[in-house]
Simulated assay, not measured.
Amino acid sequence: MPVRRIDVADGRAALAAVAAGEASRSSTATAVRYLLQLLDEKAPGNSVEVRVPPFGAVQVVQGPRHTRGTPPNVVETDAATWIALATGEITWEAARAAGRVSASGTRADLSDLLPLRP
């Protein structure tokens, strides 16, 4: 089944709602998925799994493909932190130091890919 792509206008509208503090759960989900989509476009691949429960996950970054079980390179964070990282409101280093991001594996450092500047 093909992955449903989020339209740029819909993604930007969801990000604007989040920035204005007026985001519904649906808008937050759209913003998270849109930013994950942008990350996938920027760094396609299958060696790092980025998880933002409960809204989405994506495999990115060139390298060895993972196919079974728990991936060796995993980044996990909450929706608010993911949006802040992807839009440049917080740095990778600050989010890690504050314990807002869990990253395991040798390829799980996204500092060179963030912010996304949607």
Rank of each mutant, 00 (worst) to 15 (best):
R96K: 12
A97F: 00
G105K: 06
V52K: 10
V60L: 08
A17K: 08
V50I: 15
R25Q: 10
P53C: 10
L85R: 01
L38S: 05
A95Q: 01
D109Q: 08
R25K: 11
T87C: 00
L116S: 04
E93A: 14
P44N: 14
A9N: 08
V48R: 05
T70M: 07
E49R: 15
Q62R: 15
I6R: 02
A43P: 09
N46R: 15
A80I: 11
W82H: 07
T67R: 08
A31Q: 11
V18Y: 04
V101G: 00
T70S: 02
A13R: 12
F55V: 08
A14S: 02
H66N: 04
A13N: 05
G99L: 03
P54G: 12
D109K: 03
A95D: 01
L39Y: 06
A31D: 13
D7L: 05
S24F: 04
A103L: 04
E93Q: 10
T67V: 06
G56T: 10
A95R: 02
V32I: 10
P44G: 14
A98F: 02
H66D: 02
I90E: 01
S27M: 11
P53H: 13
T91L: 02
A94S: 10
W92G: 03
R68N: 03
A17V: 07
S111A: 15
V52M: 06
A86W: 00
A19R: 14
A80L: 11
S24M: 05
R100I: 00
G56N: 08
W92I: 10
A84P: 01
R33H: 08
P115M: 11
E93H: 05
A19V: 06
S47A: 15
V3K: 12
G45T: 14
I90W: 00
L114Y: 01
I6T: 09
R96P: 00
G69Q: 06
I6C: 03
L113T: 11
G63N: 13
V50D: 07
A98N: 08
P118V: 15
E22N: 10
T67D: 04
